[in-house]
Design a protein around this nucleic acid. Structure first.
Length: 409
RNA sequence: CGGGCUGUGGUAUAGUGGCAUUACGCACGAUUCGGGUUCGUGUAAUCCGAGUUCGAUUCUCGGCAGCCCGACCA
C-alpha cells in the first residue's frame, strides 16, 4: 500500500482527552478514532491488526474443534427473561422498537446459542460440541476508560462448549486453556501473560483469567513464585495459597485481563431445556463452558506492552504490514523495491510522499512496523537500501535487488 | 452511580466583560531533502440553553460531553 493513498495520517499531538497510552499511540498513528467514550472506529491500519489477531484466534480455536458461526447482536427480551438476566445484568443495553417491543443488545451470547444448540444437538452422539463467533458485544459500562481497553462496544471472540458430563467439560476446558496460551504466545505477549485463578462464576470453584502484566491494568494479581500461576486479588483473601502447588510466596503485579474461561454448568442450558438422550435413553441436561477474548483490549494491551518513547513496536505476527519502505527524495529504486516486495507477497507500506526525511522517520517509528527499508541517494551510494528493525538503532545496507529476498526469509 | 477536573479552528494551545493568540495540519508559491527543514500568502474555532449586563467566549445557573479517582465489571 502506498502511504500517499492511505486514508489516515499521523498526528504529532495526542488528543487532550486521552490519557491512556494505548489510545494516544493508536490515535496518533491513525489506527483508531474515538467516536465517543467507549466506542472507537477501527481505521485501515488498526483493522489490519485486528484481522491478524482474529486469524490467529480463529486458527487456534478451529484447532480444538470450534465451529465458527455468527449470531445476531439484536436479541429478543424473552430469552434474557428466561435466564433471569434481563433484570440482573446491570450492563445490558436494552432497546425498544417503534411498537415498544424490547430487545437486548448482546453483551454475551448464552441466550442465543443455548436455544440454537437445542435445535441441532439431540443425542449424546453429537457431543462434545463447540461453536464460536467473532462479533461485536455491547456492555453498558458506567465508566468507559483506559482507551480501547474498556469499551461499550467491542469485538469479542466467544466460544461455547457443550458436554454430556463434567469430565468431558474438564477435558475440553484444558484444551481451551492450551489454545489460549498459544494465542497469547503468538500475538507476542506470552511471556507477560499469566493464567490466573479468579472467582468461579456459577459452577466451579474457580474460573481462569489470562492476565497480562502492565501498569495500564485494572486488576491486581498475585503470581506464585513457585509455579507461576497467579490468583486474582478478588479471591486472594479466601484463597491465600496457590490452588495449584499450595505455595504461599507471591509477588503482586498490575495486570489486564485479556481472556477468560468459565465452566458454566447448566446455568444457561437448564432454562432452555437443553438436554439430550444418553446411551441409557435418559435425558441429560448439557453442561456448558464459555471462553472469551476481547479483541480491542488485546490490541490495546499489546500496544501498552510493546512501545518506546517514539511509538508502537508491533510484533511481526500482528503488524499491519511487515515492512515500511521509505523513499527519501525521488528515486526509481524505491519503486522497484516496492514492486519486488509486492511480487513476493510481502506486506509493505510504501512511504512515497513528498515530505521531509525527519517526518518520514518519525512516522515509521510511530506506526511501528517490524522492518524499515530506506532508499535514498546516500544509501544507494553505499550500495543499496538500508534495512533496520524497528527497535534497533542501526540497520544494514543491502543491494536493492536483494531486499525482497532478504525480507522474505 | 458518588467525587474531582475540563470544554476555544481538524489537532494542540493563549487570552479577554468590548476586532479571539500561537503552533501543527490543510491550500498555494518558493526552499530543503538521513530525524517532524526554512520563508511567504491563505484557510479554519469560543459545546448547548437560560440568567446577569448596553454588551458574555469570559461571570452565574442548568444541561450535555470528555478525562481522572472510587464503586461496578457473566
Amino acid at each position: 500500500m502506498k502511504q500517499s493513498q492511505l486514508f489516515t495520517k499521523t498526528q504529532k499531538n495526542a488528543p487532550k482527552d486521552e490519557m491512556s497510552l494505548n489510545a494516544q499511540l493508536l490515535i496518533r498513528g491513525g489506527f483508531v478514532d474515538k467516536l465517543m467514550a467507549g466506542a472507537y472506529t477501527i481505521l485501515p491500519l488498526g483493522w489490519r491488526v485486528m484481522k491478524k489477531i482474529e486469524n490467529i484466534i480463529r486458527e487456534e480455536i478451529d484447532a480444538i474443534g470450534g465451529q465458527e458461526i455468527f449470531m445476531p447482536a439484536l436479541q429478543p427480551k424473552e430469552n434474557w427473561e428466561r435466564t433471569g438476566r434481563w433484570s440482573t445484568m446491570d450492563d445490558l443495553y436494552k432497546v425498544k422498537d417503534s411498537s415498544d417491543r424490547e430487545f437486548a443488545l448482546g453483551a454475551t451470547h448464552e441466550e442465543v446459542i443455548s436455544p440454537l444448540v437445542k435445535k441441532f444437538i439431540n443425542s449424546y452422539k453429537d457431543l462434545p460440541f463447540s461453536a464460536y463467533q467473532i462479533q461485536s458485544k455491547f456492555r453498558m459500562e458506567l465508566r468507559a476508560k483506559s482507551g480501547i481497553l474498556r469499551g461499550r462496544e467491542f469485538m469479542m471472540k466467544d466460544l461455547y462448549s457443550f458436554h454430556l458430563d463434567q469430565e468431558d467439560l474438564n477435558n475440553y476446558y484444558e484444551k481451551a486453556k492450551k489454545a489460549y496460551k498459544n494465542i497469547f504466545e503468538r500475538v507476542g505477549i506470552g511471556d507477560k501473560t499469566f493464567v490466573t485463578f479468579a472467582s468461579g462464576g456459577s459452577f466451579s470453584k474457580y474460573s481462569h483469567e489470562f492476565q497480562t502484566l502492565t501498569e495500564a491494568g485494572e486488576d491486581i494479581i498475585y503470581i506464585c513464585n513457585k509455579c507461576n500461576l497467579a490468583i486474582n486479588k478478588e479471591i486472594k483473601s479466601e484463597t491465600p495459597q496457590c490452588p495449584d502447588c499450595q505455595g504461599s510466596d507471591f509477588r503482586e503485579e498490575k495486570a489486564v485481563e485479556v481472556g477468560n474461561i468459565f465452566k458454566l454448568g447448566t446455568k444457561y442450558s437448564a432454562p432452555f431445556n437443553l438436554a439430550v438422550d444418553n446411551k441409557q435413553g435418559e435425558k441429560v441436561t448439557l453442561i456448558m463452558g464459555c471462553y472469551g477474548i476481547g479483541l480491542q483490549r488485546l490490541m490495546g494491551t499489546i500496544v501498552e506492552v510493546d512501545n518506546d518513547e517514539k511509538g508502537i513496536i508491533w510484533p511481526e505476527s500482528i503488524a499491519p504490514f511487515k515492512v515500511h519502505l521509505v523513499s527519501l527524495g525521488k528515486n526509481e529504486e524505491a519503486e522497484k523495491i516496492y514492486q519486488d516486495l509486492l511480487k513476493k507477497n510481502i506486506e509493505v507500506l510504501y512511504d512515497d510522499r513528498d515530505v521531509s526525511a525527519g517526518e518520514k522517520f518519525a512516522d515509521t517509528d510511530l506506526i511501528g512496523l517490524p522492518y524499515r527499508v530506506v532508499v535514498s541517494e546516500k544509501s544507494l551510494k553505499s550500495g543499496g537500501a538500508e534495512i533496520k528493525k524497528r527497535p534497533e538503532p542501526k540497520g544494514e545496507i543491502i543491494p536493492t535487488d536483494k531486499i525482497a529476498a532478504e525480507l522474505s526469509k
